[in-house]
Design a protein around this nucleic acid. Structure first.
Lengths: 224, 224
DNA sequence: GACTGTTTCAAACGATCGATTAACACTTGA
DNA sequence: TCAAGTGTTAATCGATCGTTTGAAACAGTC
């Protein structure tokens, strides 16, 4: 049982190659020799540095999740319920939240294949998390849920908790489904680079969500 | 090159076991001996009946998609664009579509673990379709997309094709995400039988979708 | 009962899997 | 200078992979 100490050069090269290969062919579909070859390293180093294939996979996952700083960091926390301007702040907060959420999910440097692969890997883990990766995943997702629900409560104080939860599920769901089903969506559109205009995509999700939530400001033309 | 003729008994037993195992551990994570054992059959029969593991996987996928009669069967096709009452018909069509879609998705799991596994398998393929499975997947999804898009076009003729496609993606996405993430959602709510009131759920998805789409009838209270 | 074709089986095949080993190069501190 | 420790390597391990094989079991036909 080696303590898996670091030698950053080959370690990080192995992790990078692992992200690429695990994203392309999945955990079981990828062999450690393949990964090692992609890193110009010997396959025995996987066991030496990471205590085995699964250890390397977890390190790759951690690297993926810590690749970007959380986009929630720049967001104002919602004002308390009674405060003046709380509703307007929550409205802007929800808009900013969706923008940050979508940007993090969708935006990746097309010129950086590792970034692209990291997104694929993350999407796969979010859909069917392995037992080992669940904690890492939940810790990453939890602040999003909390922030979203706080905004929803301020925007629709007339709804009960279950109704608000369904609202949140629908808002998150449309975005996550889009991300998780990009494969077939691109097939349906016959465009392998489909979401070409990220801003248009963000605007759609914001408008659809605010209308679905029942926020009057977002509705196009109030019936006379 | 065997012509792969049928002997329905073992064939279907193998397919059923394949659905369960492929859903649980993925294509690469599942061995044919494992599948064969689950079907009380010999692993050589996989090659004999399906020309190999990949053939069995494709047959399993086909079986998944043809497992139920399409919920679209009972729906009226939307009227042509110019026809009188076409918009109202499309509105009702969309409501009926969502009701049928949700009902089918929500009722499939508890009774039959194979049905549950089929959903997992389908979701995985939708996320990252293998080259071989893409045609099967597309053929199954296409009528849903067509019907939904026809309704959306009648309800929002002012939008261009891409905007309508995003609307459809959001509408389908919230429902599919809810279904595919039921496990996590039930954990979040601390209620293992969460969607206890199916009618309430259906009503939420219909209302959220129609508002998100921008249909005035669904909006609660126009601002004065 | 012999012939034909289909279905099933146990056994084995070569390939590849993740993991281990022993040797080697190199640095470091005593 | 030497012993210890670290990083890397090729070679090899047993296990398991998907597939192939040859024969047994079964059905139907003459």
């Amino acid at each position: 049982m080696a303590p898996c100490p670091p030698h950053q050069d080959t370690r990080s090269r192995l992790i990078e190659s692992a992200i690429l290969h695990f994203a392309a062919k999945g955990y079981d579909g990828t062999g450690i020799r393949e990964i090692a070859k992609g890193a110009n390293a010997n396959s025995a180093l996987v066991t030496y540095h990471f205590c085995g294939k699964e250890g390397l996979f977890l390190e790759a996952l951690k690297a993926v999740f810590s690749r970007k700083t959380s986009p929630l960091a720049g967001l104002q926390p919602p004002l308390p319920a009674g405060a003046p301007g709380a509703r307007q702040a929550a409205l802007e907060g929800l808009r900013a939240y969706l923008r940050a959420f979508i940007t993090e999910l969708m935006f990746c440097d097309a010129r950086d294949p590792v970034d692209e692969a990291a997104m694929v890997l993350m999407a796969r883990e979010m859909q069917s998390p392995s037992e080992a990766s669940a904690p890492v995943l939940m810790a990453h997702v939890e602040p999003y849920v909390t922030y979203l629900m706080a905004c929803l409560f301020l925007l629709r104080p007339d709804l009960d908790e279950e109704a608000l939860f369904l609202m949140g599920t629908s808002i998150q769901g449309q975005v996550l489904h889009f991300r998780n089903s990009l494969g077939i969506i691109r097939l349906l559109r016959g465009n392998p680079a489909f979401p070409e205009d990220l801003e248009k995509l963000i605007q759609h999700f914001i408008d659809f969500s605010l209308r679905g939530l029942g926020v009057p400001e977002a509705f196009p033309q109030p019936r006379n």
